[in-house]
Each structure stands twice: as C-alpha cells, then as structure tokens.
C-alpha cells in the first residue's frame, strides 16, 4: 500500500527537512530541563522523522538506514540505560534511582548530580521511544509485503 511512489518535490523537501526534524528532536530531548519536552516527546519526533522518510520514499529505504535488528537493539538499549542508571545508584549505595549518589563517580554536588541523572534517563527514554515508534510503524506497514514474498 505504501507504494514506492516517485514524487520529486516531496522527496526533496523531505530530504532537506528530515535532518532539521531530527535536530529538533535532539534539542527537545536535551532541553527538557528548562522547556517543555523531554525524552518522550523528543523520541517521538525522532521516530517521526524516520517514519516521514519511509512515507516519502519506501520501506526499503529505512531498512537501509536502520536495520530491523539494530532497531531492536536500540529498543532495549534505551531502557537498559534507564534501568541501568538506577542500578548504578543502587550499587553506589543509594536507593534505586536516587541520582544524587552519582556524585561518587561524577565531580559534582548532589543536586547537580540529580540533574545529570535526569538527563541520562531522558536520553534512555528518547532512544527507546524512537525505536519503538519506528518498530511499530514498520510492523504495521510492512506486514503484507513480506507476506507476498
């Protein structure tokens, strides 16, 4: 259904647009501390950029850029970052997800450590959400094609 259709205008516009979208997604993740946004929204935007890629080209295009296997890896790496930070806090002697204990391995004071910890988990969330969006989209969209082959 999502047939490889050749429309030069759309393809060109998308090719120009997609890097900016991705940049914006990264900004949203990184700037979640002081403005609306955060890992989840940024991740969705990043994922949406890839979805736009395959809407404007075709499904094979995205598989060239990001293989399904790598996507699955991203999927779990994101959550592992998140849960891993918690585990690190646990191992450093604090409670689970108590980022202030990160000060033991980072040269900052506890409050700053919390801020850094929040950033870390935002990145984790972002990675996972991006991968999830791509993964669900691909699963929904590509089912029939592979059935034929």
């Amino acid at each position: 259904m999502i047939s490889p259709f050749e429309d030069v205008i759309i393809q060109t516009v998308c090719r120009i647009l997609i890097p900016f979208i991705q940049l914006y997604g990264l900004y949203v993740i990184a700037h979640g501390h002081s403005s609306p946004g955060g890992g989840f929204q940024g991740g969705v935007i990043l994922g949406a950029s890839f979805i736009l890629l395959c809407l404007s080209y075709d499904l094979q295009e995205i598989k060239k850029r990001l293989s399904q296997r790598a996507n699955v890896i991203f999927l779990s790496v994101g959550v592992i970052i998140y849960a891993g930070i918690g585990i690190v806090c646990l191992l450093l002697g604090g409670n689970y997800l108590d980022y202030s204990w990160l000060r033991q391995i980072l040269p900052v004071d506890p409050v700053e450590a919390r801020s850094i910890g929040i950033f870390g988990i935002e990145v984790g969330v972002g990675v996972t959400v991006m991968a999830v969006m791509i993964s669900i989209f691909l699963d929904l969209a590509s089912e029939e094609e592979q059935k034929g082959s």
Binding site: G38, S115, I118
Partner: peptide, 8 residues
C-alpha cells in the same frame, strides 16, 4: 534537582 521544568 536544579531543573526549572517542574514536569521534568
């Protein structure tokens, strides 16, 4: 937490 965005 030194984070201005309370939601975050």
């Amino acid at each position: 937490t030194a984070v201005p965005n309370m939601v975050t």
